[in-house]
Design a protein around this nucleic acid. Structure first.
Lengths: 353, 353
DNA sequence: CTGTTAGCGCGTTCAC
DNA sequence: GTGAACGCGCTAACAG
């Protein structure tokens, strides 16, 4: 047993000459204690700088006032912004946030899930590493759960995500308006709903223009810089290169830009680049990067809000259908996208709308 | 009282036909329970999917197995990397991390400090917003505390930081070797030890070369992009511009680069730029950025390690002098720094070593 | 080896 | 309006 020199309510009670329950009543402001005693208790509390033990309180009330947040990879600024949103909302309601980083590993994710369970957090926000793995945890009884940046299954679950389908649909249409017909798409892992929805959005836009999303123009990366770089090199050096590259994530775009600079391929002269996710540096890189900005902070905030809602009304929760919150993104046009006209000879297919 | 449908040890005990303490002994693996009973208990645990309530355990043991991490501003990637280091180390020892973002506000910082106290975390890692404010919390009795990215006072405190003084000393010497004599320094808030130490490092290097760090070449920013941009514009448009700009933080460098591009000032042709903090994008921006890379992850890891050390040996802690861990940085030379020779006419002062 | 007992710090009926 | 008693889920003495 570790020695803790924290003061307890008993100390306060003794000092104020009252009973523990009176102290408790004052601390919790139940309003049933007379003004004189209240003052005495408050004085005693201040005197020894007493602060109630939230752990013990939680044991009684069944509330820990802690939220768990598990993110795929904290290295991705997207999740940092979401984290800010989560924390701001949590604080506002007197909650603290236990942050866990899965580091793209499913095993770490479930380990964190278990740790949060032991800690009896009041609710969990989960940005899963893999949609299929995420489904398995759905059946289990645990604290209220809200997914962010992922819709793990068609079945109804509480989640908040960007409208990935529409965002990509619009982005590809934008590229096609610029005259692009051969558009390469670099995706994240296709076992994640986010990637899947984004690809579908691309596919729809292209189908409407009687183009098809060919295997050769769709490449799976892993959301990290290196994969963007490697795939970018391949794409740019292929005999029949695309006139536009669409990376479905920020950091893969960084890799593509690196490949671009290294190969000294003019952009947007020969190839346009557009990427999902905005960032600090998009207007300082060369070329400045056209992006689709997600409401990152808002995703976190809305997720936390929904979660706190579930926590505070468990009765309704059972009745109400889970909510799927879809947030809109913004297209930020910058220097990396331009007309396809000056493309490589032969790169423009004969398809006409 | 909220209804929790979690199972307790009593349920397990009942199911296994043993007493609660036996269950406890099995769970904690004290090795005093016979093999047959152990098996029975484990079976019962598995049957109802029991998991011990860490909160209740903490009430007994006085350990919450939680660490608090308060960072100045989570938007800064430096702290995200440190966070990763903290978490990895924490997990290894069965701890979870409560992450708090002060958002550069001293009042939020102390609010978080208080919340962590209520939660009875076993230890706190603090990256303070302001060194002066940080001193005030030193006297208070609370959980073991380790500072990161800050030495709030000359008096001995446990902390782990980059050797800011030496890093800057070396960086300025590097610039001087390239022939630079008029070096502008853009600092973060000067109420933070980190900024102060960095400035001192610059000053020493310049003094050794009989140069002085003039007020006109030393400007205080606030570590955000905007301030770098604004100060950068001023500097570049001044009648007697510097031949080199040293930003003491990542994001201010981003601002300077923006100013540079906007004004179309050749870099490093007319002015060189070097910055503290490395980043993902340093080799994709134009020009690629020369930086001083801090061992960010390691700062977090070492900080957590030191903290866990303090937690696990409170007896020695009282005896031992607090530790100040100083980590080395790395100079990453890229495209934004070059010889000063081609500088603006008149920009080279007549000072000769 | 195992069970009984006594709290950890707090909130919450109940009598008074 | 106030205080005594009980229990939240668990660990740690101690007894057997």
């Amino acid at each position: 047993m570790v020695k803790r020199n924290d003061y307890t309510m008993r100390d306060v009670a003794r000092l104020a000459g009252v009973s523990v329950s009176t102290v408790s009543a004052v601390v919790n402001n139940t309003g049933t204690v007379g003004p004189d005693l209240t003052a005495a208790v408050q004085k005693a509390i201040a005197a020894i700088n007493f602060s109630p033990n939230e752990g013990a309180r939680g044991l009684r009330t069944g509330r820990t006032h802690m939220l768990g947040l598990i993110v795929q990879n904290i290295t991705n600024p997207f999740f940092v912004d979401a984290l800010r949103g989560v924390e701001d909302e949590a604080i506002k309601h007197g909650y603290e946030v236990l942050v866990c980083n899965s580091n793209d590993r499913v095993d770490l994710e479930s380990r964190h899930l278990n740790a949060l369970r032991l800690k009896r957090v009041d609710g969990i926000l989960l940005a899963p590493t893999d949609s299929y793995a995420a489904r398995e945890i759905l059946g289990q009884d645990r604290a209220p759960l809200v997914f962010i940046d992922c819709i793990p299954t068609k079945a109804s679950v509480n989640c908040v995500v960007t409208d990935n389908f529409e965002s990509c649909y619009n982005a590809v249409r934008y590229l096609m308006q610029l005259g692009h017909r051969k558009i390469a798409v670099i995706t994240g892992k296709l076992t994640h709903s986010t990637s899947i929805d984004r690809v579908e959005g691309c596919r729809k836009a292209m189908q409407e223009a009687s183009l098809s999303l060919l295997e050769e123009t769709l490449t799976q990366g892993d959301s990290h810089i290196e994969s963007g770089y490697r795939i970018g090199l391949n794409l740019l050096q292929s005999p029949n290169p695309p006139t536009a590259i669409f990376t479905l994530n920020n950091r893969m775009a960084l890799g593509v830009l690196r490949a671009l600079n290294e190969l000294k391929v003019p952009c947007p002269g020969r190839v346009s680049v557009i990427s999902f996710d905005d960032a600090d540096w998009t207007d300082v890189v060369s070329p400045t990067l056209t992006t689709i900005a997600q409401p990152t902070y808002e995703i976190g905030r809305a997720g936390a809000k929904l979660l706190l809602d579930l926590i505070h009304s468990p009765a309704e929760r059972a009745l109400r259908e889970p909510q799927q919150i879809l947030l809109k993104s913004t297209l930020c046009v910058r220097g990396s996208t331009g007309p396809a006209s000056g493309g490589v000879p032969g790169a423009v297919p004969s398809v006409v709308e």
